[in-house]
Design a protein around this nucleic acid. Structure first.
Length: 516
RNA sequence: GCGCCUGUAGCUCAACUGGAUAGAGCAUCGGAUUUCUAAUCCGAGGGUUGAGGGUUCAACUCCCUCCAGGCGUACCA
């Protein structure tokens, strides 16, 4: 049982109340705190004092419990904090994990960029978040797959094929067509390969470029779904809706009554020209996901897809699928700042910054960290110049440097014959050491926070704080010193910090270097 | 018009599902290196949390109004 749970149980027993404790921001307020005294009638300060005076024998992990301004603050004993090292060392790469998911199957769909050009910076944001959530959810005991949906049918694919063809034979680019540099490269390639089917050629070529970019970015997908395949089950979906009496014809189009399922109005499934709307294969795709046995579907989408959610959820509800198990996360736009100016992006005009450029100029770790320190909802400003300029003092290097420093300490310790010895841990006790132990103890709660909120930035913030505590400790105290016992104690602490820092970086999908 | 998102230090962002004195990095200024990596540490300045009301013992956080920006509001994808 976790320390937090133990304390909660104890307080519940003492008070008979559903006490929730939280970690504190200020160490002066202890390790954990509860505001239970505020929720009882009467003066909170008096309530808190009453609760404490009735308290029965404390578990030995608690040093003291005191009241301040009505809060009840719990201070852990040193021995309880020392135990964290043991836990971290025992659990190793699994420290922070917990089988909360119990194997429940989750399908994470993200990036899913149209195969009409190279991946861009916002795709990198989605890729970072999606991959991180994959790692966290897997860590938390879910069985997760990562899927990329390839829209290989739409009008934009025809336009793409025409654009390449025009470039190849030296014609003008068609109205609204694609003009980027990559189009001429594709045209060059087409000249050599002489493809029968231009659309298929364009899609598969661009897709392989996108896959390479993702591999370079360190993000691998387990599944690739194609709209052309999904379209085959569309008639079946419409048939099912028809059997439920939810389909009608109007103005030569086929409509579905999503308005009966939370949507603001009904939607068209088949246009009057006989083509499907975007919605139809989208419904089919999500039905297909549920039919493949996934309990929860998570889609990471851009804000331009917001309008799709109510119709999709409505239709899924209508078909009897648990639309509540479809979680849509919006990954906000990225504004590119270059030379201090906002860059206007247009894929068709060929004005954009590719993820490849970002990877080669500032590196994947820096880019991922920038994406993962922000909340999904924030409209992030990606300052290319700052990212390059700051690359020496970038926050991600701050964390990686801490890791490299610890690796260096381990190397020196090894040379001098100093090893890890958990029995010496009780020699620790200064402020910096105790702060580090507290921080290590909180890691599992942070991971759980990400699992609950799907917001990776908690881990990024946590790692910065942990690295900061370590750097301070490093400046003030020597790990490897003349005092052999103390050296062993501090080395043991260092190895635990390194483990947690490594676990955190791994969850973010960022490298943990032994040397820098 | 309506709906969703955003607005926090000069800049980029945090703030653990309402908590105690709103924190980091960059930038500016001042310090620290015979010792395990200075990609580090210590310190200073910098805030009416877009504005105004409300709820609460307690509001960056919840509610209302307004302002600014983004996205959506299609028989486009």
């Amino acid at each position: 049982m976790r320390i937090k749970d133990t304390i909660q149980e104890w307080l519940k027993e003492c008070t008979g109340l559903p006490v929730e404790i939280t970690t504190t921001r200020n160490p002066a307020f202890g390790d954990y705190t509860t505001n239970i005294a505020f929720s009882i009638e009467g003066d909170p300060k008096e309530n808190a004092r009453n609760i404490l005076s009735n308290v029965r024998k404390k578990p030995d992990i608690i040093e003291k419990a005191e009241t301040k301004n009505g809060f009840i603050n719990i201070f852990l004993s040193k021995s309880a904090l020392f135990r964290v090292i043991d836990t971290v060392r025992k659990e190793g790469n699994l420290y922070g994990s917990y089988n909360k998911g119990e194997g429940k199957r989750i399908l994470l769909e993200f990036v899913s960029a149209n195969p009409t050009g190279p991946l861009e910076v916002p795709n990198g944001r989605a890729a970072s978040i999606g991959d991180c959530l994959y790692r966290v959810l897997s860590f938390m005991g879910y069985s997760v797959d990562k899927e990329y949906y390839i829209d290989d049918c739409g009008r934009q694919i025809k336009l793409l094929a025409k654009s390449i063809n025009a470039r190849m034979i030296g014609d003008n680019v068609p109205e609204g067509g694609y003009k980027g540099e990559y189009i001429s490269e594709l045209a060059d390639r087409a000249r050599i390969m002489k493809p029968q089917n231009f659309e298929e050629f364009a899609v598969s070529t661009i897709l392989s470029l996108q896959k390479k970019t993702l591999t370079d970015f360190g993000v691998e997908f387990t599944n690739w779904a194609r709209e052309s395949e999904i379209r085959k089950i569309c008639p079946d979906i419409i048939e099912k809706l028809k059997n439920k009496g939810l389909i009608y014809k109007e103005d030569n189009a086929v409509w579905v009554k999503t308005s009966s399922f939370g949507d603001e109005k009904d939607r068209v499934l088949i246009k009057s020209d006989g083509e499907y709307t975007y919605l139809t294969p989208d419904i089919a795709y999500h039905v297909n996901k549920f039919e493949r046995g996934y309990h929860t579907l998570i889609d990471i989408l851009g804000p331009d897809h917001l309008g799709h959610i109510p119709p999709l959820k409505g239709a899924l509800e209508a078909l009897g699928y648990p639309s509540g198990n479809l979680v849509v996360l919006i990954s906000q736009w990225v504004t590119i700042l270059e030379d201090g100016k906002k860059k206007r992006m247009s894929k068709r005009e060929g004005r954009f910054i590719t993820l490849d450029e970002i990877i080669s100029t500032i590196g994947k770790d820096v880019a991922k960290f920038i994406f993962l320190t922000r909340k999904r909802d924030s409209h992030l400003v990606f300052d290319i110049d700052a990212a390059k300029r700051e690359s020496k003092e970038n926050p991600v290097y701050y964390i990686q440097y801490a890791y490299a420093r610890m690796s260096s300490i381990e190397r020196v310790a090894k040379e001098r014959g100093i090893g890890i010895n958990e029995s010496k841990v009780k020699l620790l006790g200064n402020k910096e050491e105790m702060d580090l132990l507290r921080k290590l103890m909180h890691f599992p709660e942070i991971v759980e926070e990400v699992e609950r909120t799907f917001e990776p930035n908690y881990i990024a913030t946590y790692l910065t704080e942990l690295a900061s505590l370590f750097h301070t400790f490093y400046e003030r105290h020597r790990v490897v010193s003349n005092d052999g016992d103390l050296s062993e104690a501090r080395l043991t602490l260092t190895s635990a910090i390194k483990q947690v820092l490594g676990n955190g970086l791994s969850l973010l999908g960022i490298t943990a270097p032994e040397r820098m």
